[in-house]
Design a protein around this nucleic acid. Structure first.
Length: 164
DNA sequence: GCCAACGTTGGC
DNA sequence: GCCAACGTTGGC
């Protein structure tokens, strides 16, 4: 038995990131410089911690949330590791956090870059797919804006649109 | 706008 | 450290 059974630390991970189309749609992202956006505004420790775990090249589903047609709208990749969120110190921002100090920032975020837009995979379609029953965002009461996605779930979602 | 579910706050 | 009150999320 060798030590070769463990996975390389560089294996890309999969995530799902919820965004509100009111702020940035997948098409908005496509039109930004470098098709890249800083994922600012996360104010939940669990979601922040997931961003800290992200590595360059990890892939994420870009999910449209709080809108008429919620669902997966595209794929993005992590293009910059977590760094302090400037909006927490901006008193005019809706993400301002008076309790966070510049010498000890509470909130961080990654940057994400568009990989490809997908035909919208609606929340209803996700719910109708038995193989996705354990997908985190489909669990009762789940509100986390950033969640890990199992490899099998990632592949299953892509099967829904015959990409892979 | 409703409301279930969950996270955060703060008094004790 | 408990827990009630309050705020937020997010689909419907």
């Amino acid at each position: 038995m060798t030590a070769a059974t463990s996975k390389p630390p560089t294996a890309p991970k999969f995530w799902l990131m919820k965004g509100e189309p009111d702020e940035c749609t997948i098409d908005d992202l496509a039109n930004l410089p470098n098709q890249t956006v800083p994922w600012t505004g996360v104010r939940n420790y669990q979601a922040r911690n997931f961003m800290r775990e992200m590595r360059l090249g990890d892939l994420a589903f870009f999910y449209h949330s709080s809108c008429p047609e919620p669902g997966i709208a595209g794929i993005v990749q992590i293009s910059r590791l977590a760094y302090p969120d400037a909006t927490q110190f901006d008193a005019k921002s809706k993400y301002f956090d008076a309790k966070s100090k510049p010498e000890a920032p509470r909130w961080e975020h990654v940057d994400v870059q568009l990989v490809r837009k997908l035909p919208l995979i609606s929340l209803a379609t996700l719910r109708e797919t038995p193989a996705l029953a354990d997908l985190t965002i489909l669990q009762r009461g789940n509100r986390l804006s950033i969640t890990p996605v199992d490899t099998v779930h990632w592949e299953q979602v892509l099967k829904l649109i015959a990409i892979n």
